[in-house]
């Protein structure tokens, strides 16, 4: 179960509002490669894991992603909370504002609402860990794209932190995959699903 600490994992103190940037960064909140997808993916996959240490890793990284979700929401909130009506109208943020005012709602920059199709929980450890490694790279790429667009150091610092965390997570999922391969038959890793099949060959 979860405890809550009333602080952000990394501080966010943005002085200058920026509606255009908020519309971009929202992809890391509810977009296809964002933190909501990441946390739901890992926290959903962990139940079917056949090895406790891998289930533990998924729980810990999934929990950290929830903290990142909170950071991204904070960035969007601070970029938009002091916007004037004129800024809202001029920046194209009016399309979001009409449905949500300044509320935070999980969608991608292009408007696609967050949905479970943005992640998979396949119930096969090799498949799920491969998905997780890809997910971390997708998130890292998205942060690269965001960094190209930012000039404000108040926004840069938390984004750079979040991007680096994706790289570390990639390494950990890669290690979990090594641990898994090491426990399976090296002649054929795919002979059976260790989380489902009771035996390799029942003949």
């Amino acid at each position: 179960m979860w405890s809550y600490e009333k602080r952000l994992q990394f501080p966010v103190n943005i002085k200058e509002p920026n509606a255009k940037l908020a519309q971009i960064i929202i992809s890391q909140y509810g977009g296809p490669d964002g933190e909501m997808g990441a946390s739901m993916r890992y926290l959903s996959q962990r139940y079917a894991m056949p090895y406790r240490d891998v289930a533990g890793l998924l729980t810990d990284i999934g929990t950290e992603e929830l903290a990142h979700l909170e950071m991204v929401a904070t960035i969007i909130h601070q970029l938009t909370r002091n916007l004037s009506m004129e800024e809202i109208e001029k920046s194209g943020f009016d399309k979001y504002y009409v449905d949500h005012t300044l509320g935070i709602w999980p969608q991608a920059a292009g408007g696609v609402p967050f949905n479970a199709c943005e992640f998979q929980s396949k119930g096969d450890i090799i498949t799920d860990l491969s998905e997780d490694m890809a997910a971390e790279q997708k998130a890292r790429s998205t942060y690269d794209n965001i960094l190209r667009m930012i000039k404000d150091p108040d926004v840069c610092e938390p984004i750079k932190f979040l991007r680096e965390r994706e790289i570390v997570h990639y390494q950990r999922f890669g290690e979990a995959l090594r641990l898994t391969a090491d426990r399976l038959n090296e002649k054929n890793f795919y002979a059976f699903n260790p989380g489902f099949d009771r035996c390799e060959d029942c003949n």
Binding site: Q9, P11, D60, E64
Partner: peptide
């Protein structure tokens, strides 16, 4: 608060390392 953030973060990075 800054010190708490720093120490806790160190623990988180170590915890993920320890998971594997």
């Amino acid at each position: 608060l800054n010190n708490i953030n720093i120490v806790d973060f160190t623990m988180v990075d170590l915890a993920l390392f320890l998971d594997t």
